[in-house]
Every structure is written in C-alpha cells, then in structure tokens.
Design a protein around this nucleic acid. Sequence first.
DNA 1: GTATAATACGTTAACGCTAACGTTTGCGAT
DNA 2: ATCGCAAACGTTAGCGTTAACGTATTATAC
Lengths: 341, 341
Amino acid sequence: MVTLKDIAQRAGVSSMTVSRVMNGNTKDVSRKTSERIRKIADEMGYVPNSSARSLASHSSRLIAALLQEYDEDRNPLEDSYTSCFLGELAHQIKEEGYDLMLHYVKDYSEITYSLKSWNVAGAVFIGMFDESIRKLQEDNQIPLVFTDSYSTVRSITNVGIDDYRGGEMAAEYFLKCGHRNLAFFGPEVLDNGVVTHRIRGFVSVLREAGISLPSENFINLGTENLGERLKGICAGENPVTGIFTTADYCAYQIYSEAYRVGLRIPEDLSVAGFDDLSMSALMTPPLTTIRQDIKKKASVTCDLLMKNIREPDSPAENIVLGVELAERGSVRKVDNPFSIL
Amino acid sequence: MVTLKDIAQRAGVSSMTVSRVMNGNTKDVSRKTSERIRKIADEMGYVPNSSARSLASHSSRLIAALLQEYDEDRNPLEDSYTSCFLGELAHQIKEEGYDLMLHYVKDYSEITYSLKSWNVAGAVFIGMFDESIRKLQEDNQIPLVFTDSYSTVRSITNVGIDDYRGGEMAAEYFLKCGHRNLAFFGPEVLDNGVVTHRIRGFVSVLREAGISLPSENFINLGTENLGERLKGICAGENPVTGIFTTADYCAYQIYSEAYRVGLRIPEDLSVAGFDDLSMSALMTPPLTTIRQDIKKKASVTCDLLMKNIREPDSPAENIVLGVELAERGSVRKVDNPFSIL
DNA sequence: GTATAATACGTTAACGCTAACGTTTGCGAT
DNA sequence: ATCGCAAACGTTAGCGTTAACGTATTATAC
C-alpha cells in the first residue's frame, strides 16, 4: 500500500505537502511542486485511504442510502420504482465525488448505527421511516434527506411529488373518458403516505363530480382471487368500468388477473396506474398512468443533500415535484352522451 | 461521540479491555467485566468507529458491489435482473454482519480505487468486466467473486448459471410444441457472455433436429421499427412461429411491438424469454421462460465471498447453477402432424 | 513450597491521514 | 536597512481503534 509518506520520501517533501496536493489545495503549495508530486503519486499508484481520512478529518465522502426492510424475504429492490431511484441516485452521488453505501434498516437503532459507524457525510431515506424521523431529528447532526415523506415533523428536508394532484389527474381523465363507475386498487392500510394522498386526490375529484366510491370498490392489494373479484365488480347492472391503482406494479397485477379471468383491457375494464415505470409503456395495452420523473427526483435529492452538507445550517426544504398524465391505451373512451364534462 | 476511552473511564478499565468486549473476545476478559462493560456501552449509546477499526486492523467489514456503468444515462439498476440480484445480495451481506457499498465503475482505475480506498474485505462483480479481470488478478489480494463471467482467466471465483443448457431447453420446448421456424432476438454484439451461450445452446438443439436458423431470423435489440420487422418474418410462405429472446426484458419488447402491429401472442407469434423476472408471470399472456434462481445465486455468491474472506487461500470455484423451464402461456402448441418429436 | 501455566487485565505503538500551528524564504514598501 | 507579509513549506499531535507484547494475580501440578 502506497501512503502519503512514501510519496513524500520520494519527492523529498513532508507528507503534509503531499496531503495538500492530494486534496487540491493550490494555496499552500507551489504549482511546480504540486505537479511533481501528482506525477509521482500517479506513478506509484497512490490511492488515498478513506478510513484514515475519515478518522482524521471527522468527515467522509460517504453517503448512506437507507432502504426500509419490511420482511425477511421481501426484496426492496424488486420494486422497480425503488431500484430505479437508487440507480439514478447512485449515479448522481458518484458525479459529486462521493461514495454510496446501501443499508437495509428495520428499526431505529439500525439507522443510527449505519449513520454513525462510518460517520457518513449524509443520508437519503428511500421509503417510509415515519416513526424514526422524530428521534433522528433530535440526536443527529448528519444531513438527511427524506423522499416521499409526509411526516408531520417540521424542519425535515424532503423530496416528494404531488401525489394528491396525481390522484386528481387520474380521476379527471377517467371522467373525461366518460367513466362514471370506478374502483380503486391498492394497499389496505393507509398510513398517510403517498398512497393516501393519491387516493384523496382521486376521490376528491369524483366527489366534486357527484360520484361516490362505495367501499366495496376499494380493492385491497393481496385480495385472494383478485380475478374473480374483478369479474364481480365488472358485472351486474351498474358495472365498474375503470380502476385506479396506487402504483404501476399494482396495475400489472390487474392486467394479469384480468387476463386470467378473461376480462379485456380496456374493453371490459380500464386501468390507470401511477409512477410510469419503464415497463408500463411496454404493457399490452400500454398503461395509462401518472408519470413522475424519477431521474429528476434523484438529482434534486442529491442536490439538496450536497447543499446540506456544504451549508449545514441551510434551512429545511420540502420539494414537491410535478406529475403529468401519460396517456396511453389502458383507459377506454366510453361513449357517454350524457356526460356533462 | 462515545469512544472506547469514554466507556473505559466509566468502567474503570483500560480501553483495550473494552475493545475486547466489543469484539466478543471471551477469552481475555472475565464474564463479569464483560457484562458490566456491555451494559455501560449500551447506556452510553456506543457505536464503534468503523474507520478507526479499518485503519488499525487493516481490514473492514465492508463489501463492494461493482456495477458496470455503460453509458452516462443508462441506469444499470433499471434492469430488473440486476436490481433483484443486488437486493438479495444486500440482504445476505447484512446477515453476515457486513456493510455494502455500491460502486458504478467504468474502467479499471475506478475499480482499484473503489476496492483500495476503503480497503474493503471483498467485492462482487455484477455484470461484465472481462478486460479488467486479468489485471485484477495480478495486483489484488482482495477476495473477489464474479457473476456470470465466462472469462478464460483461470482461478477466478465465479457464480453463474447454465446458460447453454437454458438455450437448449428453450429450443427443445419450441420443438416439442411443434415449432419449426424460429427466430432469435437479442443484442447485436456477442461478447462470449451469457447471451452467446444461450444462443449456442439454442442453435445446437435446432441443428441437431435438422433445423437451421437463417441469419435474417436473428433480430437485433434496437432494431428500428421492430414491429414491422416482426410482421415481416411472421408473414410469407414460411412464416416464423416462435421467437427466443435473450432475456425477459427483451421479450417484453416483443410483446409491446407485437401488440402495436396487431400480432397476437401466442396465436400469431410464440415467445420465450430467459431469467423469469417477477414481471414475467404477470404479462399477458404469462411469459414462458427459462428460470434462474436469483435468490440462490445471491446467496451462493455471498457464501463464496465469505469463504474467501475467512480462508484467503481457498481455491477458486466456478459454480454453475441449474435452470428450469417455466412453462406458461406465450408459446403456442402448434398442430403439426408431421412432427417427428 | 516452588514451578508452571492459565486468566485477566494493562501498555505501547502504530495504522494513514489531517488540523492547527510553526518556520523559512523572498519581496515589495517605507 | 528594516519591516511586514504572503507564499511555501514543515512539525506536532491526535483521530479511535487494535496488534503485540507485558504484567499481575490466581490456580494447578508435583
């Protein structure tokens, strides 16, 4: 292992001078020396020891990405949204010259452990950590950026999207296409997170239009025999014609189950999703969905984190990115002469 | 920040004793002292400083996952296979009490930098790094595990699957279903990696059965107007009835383009994929594909890495995991009275 | 009762680096 | 000639931890 000392010896200077060169300090070292040392370092294949740096300077060029680990055997990265975001984030972080650690965390103690043991420069929370946020705020100096958090705790830096507006847009589009009898498909427990806001936006528009969403039209993720259930609501004298799903991956399940029981999309049942994962455009039919710009989200997240690192006292921000409708082929235009819209 | 010294002072012992306790050394410290110190450490909220540990011990409990960064704006984790594998790996690594770094790398210098600067305990290569492997072998003592590498360099620890056999199985299944005129869809450049072996297996079975695959039936990923191309080969007097894709995500593209040009799957065109990503079972129709066990692959990878870390002189192994056919609905049974199979 | 060994600690130095301060040199201003 | 000052270095000490060795105490053997 080549150390500063080794280079210093070869160059006939002190290791401090080498250190300065390696850290790009142009003020305390002459241009000539700097170039000479840099050349020697290259020749010798010097790689700075990040651990020693971190120890001596009480700071590191390390960012932790924290993922919620729900179950023993559920893979957070199997969710395309999460992995896509992580991938973009990793790219941005690298661009900034930082390294990235990946941490699965279950409870609070694991979070602090992750952050403190490597004295990371900052951390990004991907997913929900609501119970932990309050505690984190208290005893932590580390710059933190949350994503998609609707925590009531103030002074939290967060990057999210306009989930409520997204829900509204979905509803508006269904109405515009002439649908009047709709259903909803998503997780059972509403934890005041993204899903809740998507629903609220959706329902609010329907209510505005005088349309109610009966509770039997709320279908839970994990419903047994989803296909039969779908057939059920699509039959009868007042059949559901469209279903709004909380996320694209939920929509994929609808596609699958609809196919299984012989329900055609969009002829028998229209579907709209949320997120616009890359897969959605490839579905048959292509999924109409509410698009969020994951790349942008990651880049904003990174920017905010870097700002927090460089200016530790900068105020907390709550960024809300816009969403847009990706109109494709999964929502049918219903022939509805009585439409008032 | 609570240090060993702080705890030592409170407990009235030397920091070395605390260090021993924290490292689970039961031999050099009495049970009574050990428990007392452990309690104090808990109370004070001690978190060991990994950087200091790494510096002092010349080893860390850190694993690097290296991902190939192809383009500026291509996200490696948008590929479901990669992200799924990474997710499983992260879980396994955590179970072993190690931390995980995520590194995008482009060229060799970046690799060594990643590995050396944090003096990681080991690294996993996800994706292809063939040019780098030779150099890595030379100047590196760090335990390395490659995945899906067909490098000719001996003495490399690698975890892969039986891609060739997978290709064979796909071909056998197509033949069994009565298909005689097949096509192939995958990347243009064959780099002696997984794709190459999948094709070779596929073609070998066809050749065995006296069926040739004309070069115009090799369709490149990224073909412009793929849909029209598909229509083309499915028409004429000797139409293609089935297409083997190099990976599931390629099959998804076929689905999409086939739908776009009005080609029904599997009635007009049968499709088989490779990998069995979670999405595949949800496609309409569910994709018939060659399944590999990603979870198993990750766990074997982790096991091998740990073994290499604990026994640095253990011989290199090349693990080849089996594959199996996931028979679903995307390959039609052709009515073919002249079939000899 | 002495030798031997095991147990349970403590001491010292070092890991590679940097913060903080010190020193030398050169040079323009007075 | 002297002062001031900036530029370009060097010195020292310490970050939190552990490896390697040292020491006191107690137990065991004969």
